[in-house]
């Protein structure tokens, strides 16, 4: 790769990004613009922005590497991502969220939940959860991007981290959600082009669709011995039903879909950015294609890279990279198998994937601080503050604090904790927000007492489980070892279960029981949230 050409391509891309951030700044007149884009976002922009925020670099490189190791059975995850993450999310969650969000004048996800249950406490606690725990997740994405820049530009790590963080902070700070959405659209479109080209070039390289898959099937005898012993049967076959490797694949699929995705504040808020259900219906078309081209292509190309490496080097993918680190497989494959022009495109694709995820996180942290923690929301009846500029300054302060905390966490936290940050945050969001979000959308009887009880249960159970039981986390955090000398308070199978498997169902049950034991909410509060439903849903 020629570094000069890459730097030219990179500078052009960054200039375009900064210009779009400037455009967002020019078009931001009030707090509603800064937080929800004035609720008038174009469906293509909304769908691509949702998808690009959803998919980070680790999804492309990490998922691709996993498929190179475990095989194409992981495609069930891509299927569930599209079905739940797009189809169900947009049509069932999105429409209701947009309607209630517009009725109650909500600008953030915690505010949406707070107003649905008429509880400032829910909004504040939600804002605190986002503002305290999201920086760790944001830090993990910052680190991933900085490592990548360090490698590709031969920069010192700390400078790579500073440059990356500052560029994103500038356009999120200045342009608000419009700056984020415009840049997301550029970044998402680059991602579509990059992954589309990767799929086509891979099939061409391997002699066509049928030949590539047949070659991969014929490679089954070369499947890693350790995996074959655990029940793996090759890259185009599922592992033996019920075998250890089968469980590895299935739990990766179930946790990867992460019901956590449905309750991500930076994703849910995007449903409130469109004008009507018409835009959401159109966004489904774009969103479905986008996620297929990201996770679907990553899994297929990752698995097929084995054919290329075996033909060229006589080794399978996991034996080509050093120490069998699966995260290095996709970059190694791109560098070895793809034409030079594509290497540049793919580098920008990975950078775009990271930037679009980081920007959504920073914006969510900023609004949580400026809007939710120090709640400025009006809970009175008919107040609409669509034209007010109140809250922009405090949100910008929140963005700055969020940037600094994420940067510091990313720089100082040990790599083992950073690697767990994404799943920790997804698990916590699912347990904290999802029970009352689902019930609040589809059950008019849902009330404040139940929502608060479930929220507290979810937070306490998640944190306890992460720190004291789930061995993958508790071992690294180390508190339980310091206190008891053991790595987990409970034995198998509990210690291998992710917190989401325990905390989310428990919080859901508590929400239900407490709701049924307490009075319903006043009829007018509920009617206000759901008004015009009959007209809006049928559109």
């Amino acid at each position: 790769m020629n570094l000069t050409i890459f730097i030219i391509v990179l500078v052009v891309y960054l200039l375009a990004t900064i210009f779009l951030g400037y455009l967002g700044w020019k078009r931001t007149k009030n707090a509603s613009d800064f937080m929800v884009g004035g609720r008038k976002t174009h469906p293509y922009v909304m769908a691509i922005s949702y998808g690009a925020t959803f998919i980070s670099t680790s999804a492309i490189v990490g998922f691709g590497g996993q498929a190179a190791n475990l095989g194409m059975g992981l495609l069930w995850l891509a299927f569930l991502n599209i079905l739940l993450g797009i189809f169900v999310a947009f049509i069932f969650f999105g429409k209701k969220t947009r309607l209630i969000g517009a009725n109650l004048d909500a600008h953030t996800f915690p505010e949406f939940l707070g107003k649905r249950y008429d509880s400032r406490a829910i909004q504040r606690i939600g804002g605190i959860v986002v503002f305290i725990f999201m920086p760790m997740y944001a830090g993990a994405v910052l680190i991933g991007a900085a490592r990548f820049i360090e490698e590709s530009l031969k920069l010192q790590f700390v400078w790579a981290l500073v440059i990356y963080t500052v560029i994103i902070a500038i356009y999120v700070f200045a342009g608000g959600i419009k700056g984020v959405m415009y840049t997301d659209t550029l970044q998402g479109t680059i991602m579509l082009g990059g992954m589309g080209a990767l799929l086509i070039l891979t099939y061409v390289k391997l002699g066509g669709f049928v030949s590539a898959h047949k070659a991969l099937t014929d490679l089954a005898s070369k499947f890693p011995a350790a995996l074959a012993k655990g029940g793996g049967q090759g890259w185009t076959t599922m592992p033996v039903l019920g075998s250890p490797i089968w469980w590895t694949v299935v739990s990766a699929i179930i946790l990867g879909v992460g019901i956590g995705v449905l309750a991500q504040p930076q994703l849910a808020v995007r449903f409130m950015m469109v004008k009507s259900n018409k835009e959401l219906n159109r966004a489904v078309l774009i969103g479905g294609i986008f996620i297929l081209m990201m996770t679907g292509v990553a899994f297929v190309v990752g698995a097929l890279s084995n054919v290329y490496f075996f033909r060229e080097a006589g080794k399978i993918a996991v034996d080509v990279v050093e120490k069998g680190n699966v995260d290095l497989i996709i970059p190694a494959y791109i560098n070895a198998a793809m034409p030079p022009w594509f290497v540049y495109l793919f580098m920008i694709t990975l950078l775009a994937a990271a930037m679009s995820t980081s920007s959504g996180q920073l914006h969510a942290m900023g609004t949580s601080f400026g809007r939710d923690v120090f709640s400025r929301s009006k809970y009175s009846a008919d107040y609409k503050e669509e034209k007010s500029t109140k809250g922009i300054v405090s949100t910008r302060i929140g963005i700055l604090i969020g940037v600094i905390v994420s940067f510091v966490l990313g720089y100082f936290l040990p790599i083992s904790i950073v690697a767990r940050a994404t799943s920790l945050f997804f698990g916590l969001c699912a347990a904290t927000f999802l029970p009352m979000y689902i019930l609040g959308l589809f059950w008019k009887r849902a009330n404040k007492a139940g929502a608060l009880a479930g929220m507290i249960t979810g937070i306490v159970t998640s944190v306890f489980w992460m720190f004291f039981v789930h061995e993958a986390n508790s071992k690294i955090i180390g508190i339980v070892t310091a206190m008891t000398g053991k790595t987990s308070l409970l034995g198998a199978p509990w210690k291998s279960m992710d917190s989401i498997v325990i905390a989310f169902p428990l919080a859901f049950i508590v929400t239900l029981i407490v709701t049924l034991c307490t009075k319903p909410m006043p009829k007018e509060t509920v009617d206000k949230a759901f008004k015009k439903e009959e007209i809006a849903i049928s559109k």
């Binding site: 095989g71 194409m72 059975g73 495609l75 069930w76 891509a78 299927f79 599209i82 079905l83 797009i86 189809f87 049509i91 099937t217 185009t236 076959t237 599922m238 018409k278 219906n281 159109r282 966004a283 489904v284 078309l285 774009i286 969103g287 479905g288 294609i289 297929l292 679907g296 297929v300 559109k539």
Partner: peptide
């Protein structure tokens, strides 16, 4: 082996579902 083939197929089918739903609604909402 069939279940992996089905995973590939279902990925394409669910995307088609999204595309067809979006296109039909687009036409309807015009």
């Amino acid at each position: 082996g069939v279940s992996v083939f089905l995973a590939y197929l279902f990925c394409i089918l669910v995307t088609l579902l999204c595309v067809i739903y979006g296109a039909v609604m687009w036409n309807k909402d015009k």
